[in-house]
Design a protein around this nucleic acid. Structure first.
Length: 412
RNA sequence: GCGCCUGUCGUCAAGUGGUUAAGACCUCGGAUUGUGGUUCCGAUAUGCAUGGGUUCGAAUCCCAUCAGGCGCCCCA
């Protein structure tokens, strides 16, 4: 019989890995709650159109990476990211009428049909935050702060925050035009990808990793455009304000003029947080402002900003976490007494097990020493006397107490 | 979609053409009929991803397929 295996690019998260995941999830709730954010869970599939209109149909994510299927003549898609879904819910539930800001956080699986590699899977998990209703740069600062403090709470240092401003649609258009103008003479020397980008999404040109292209973009007249502060006065003001906040909050960051996020909905602030310990896929967090998305998806004109983090990447930076041992393992050769005592202890809030196969005493004790902090010995003598012997498996100390006791204080 | 690398027990592996495919961990059983985890003994791959081919002989060489890893692209 052929064995059925996990699908390419997907992974089981095994019991041994769960401590790390519980840790990430608990910290997310803890940290984001401090900022007044509430958790939201949206469906794993949505109308395909949501992503086409939301994420943008010039992006790779929408063009070639979506899991799309038909059902009852509807086109549905497994979510490749969660911002579009959260925005859809925000609109559908009239959240623009809530007192701004509306701060939402989420965690869950996302799906992209890509070639898997280190730090990249087809089903992966993101944890993220979206803040709606505030156009002031204070919101940008707070969102970045939430990301940084969450990473800190996970014990991750050595992370670099990169920042850029894409400007608003108007000034971006001006920039695109100028950029295309100055690059035009070299168009034929660019790599095929770049030639396509030139038309589709000129900002992405700057991301190219091909040496020949990089050399072209390094030319003085092109650098002059790239490094120029092309953004309009209002956008520049917004960006400067943000930087003031970050400085005041002692958040280290660097300006990366080449930072262009791959999703179409971003405007003004974009940021990324990178690690040097991840190999090729080194971004743990990406985010930015998306002031026109809510309106584009049919909602009230509502500014918004958010970020998402890849939880598998976080997990690999956090490393292994020890699994907790059971509080107690019951050593007893009378199965009826064993199951009764075990249930009594569970009602007292103690995690415990007994030997379902009723093996020999020594075997049970051996098992106890592997899986539990304490062995509770309930032998013929103890049963007759209404007592239980508690053995600390690390120190080997043991004492016999009345069975009527609450064991919680002895075992925790 | 493209390039490079890799597939030997549940896990980590040795083996690079010549008899029964090392070893370690895990698991299970025993030494040990109420005192364990650091001791000792034992059990566990008729098979080396799958299918062909070369050869007297293949885990080992060749081809194909499949799977995985890494890199490009893109992103978390």
């Amino acid at each position: 019989m052929a064995v059925i295996k996990v699908q390419k690019g997907t992974k089981d998260i095994l019991p041994s890995e769960m401590p790390v995941w519980h840790f990430m999830e608990a910290k997310a709730n803890e940290v984001f709650s401090k900022y007044g954010a509430k958790e939201i869970r949206t469906p794993i599939f949505e109308a395909t159109e949501l992503f086409a209109r939301g994420v943008g149909d010039t992006t790779d994510i929408v063009n070639k990476e979506m899991y799309t299927f038909e059902k009852s003549e509807r086109s549905l898609t497994l979510r490749p990211e969660n911002t579009a879904g959260v925005v859809r819910s925000f609109i559908e539930n009239g959240m623009h009428r809530l007192s701004a800001p509306v701060k939402l956080w989420y965690k869950g699986p996302m799906f992209r049909y890509e070639r898997p590699q280190a730090g990249r899977q087809r089903q992966f998990h993101q944890v993220g935050v979206e803040v709606f209703g505030i156009k002031q740069p204070a919101a940008d600062a707070e969102v970045i702060l939430m990301a940084v403090n969450y990473l800190k709470a996970l014990g991750l240092n050595d992370l670099a925050v990169e920042l850029n401003s894409l400007g608003c649609p108007e000034c971006r258009e001006v920039f695109k035009t100028k950029l295309k103008e100055v690059i035009k003479p070299y168009l034929n020397d660019l790599c095929p990808d770049c030639q396509a980008r030139y038309e589709k999404n000129p900002l992405r040109l700057l991301d190219c990793k091909v040496e020949e292209c990089k050399a072209i973009y390094a030319k003085p007249e092109i650098q002059a455009i790239i490094q120029s502060d092309f953004i309009c006065e209002e956008c520049a003001e917004h960006f400067n304000e943000l930087k003031k906040y970050l400085d005041a909050l002692n958040i280290n960051y660097s300006i990366n003029k080449l930072l262009v996020r791959g999703l179409d909905y971003y405007n003004r602030t974009v940021f990324e947080i990178k690690s040097n310990n991840l190999g090729s896929q080194n971004a743990v967090c990406g985010g930015g402002r998306y002031d026109s998305l809510v309106k584009n998806l049919g909602g009230e004109d509502t500014p918004a900003i958010g970020f998402a983090m890849g939880m598998e990447r976080l997990a690999s930076l956090i490393g292994e976490k020890e699994d907790k041992k059971l509080d107690a393992f019951i050593v007893c050769n009378n199965p009826l007494e064993a199951v009764k005592l075990t249930e009594e202890l569970r009602l007292q809030g103690i995690n415990c097990e007994f030997d379902l196969t009723n093996k020999k005493f020594v075997k049970q004790l051996e098992k106890a020493s592997k899986v539990a902090k304490f062995a509770l010995i309930l032998g013929e003598d103890e049963i007759a006397a209404g007592k239980v012997t508690i053995k600390n498996l690390e120190t080997s100390e043991q004492k016999t107490i009345e069975r009527a006791n609450n064991f919680f204080t002895y075992l925790k």
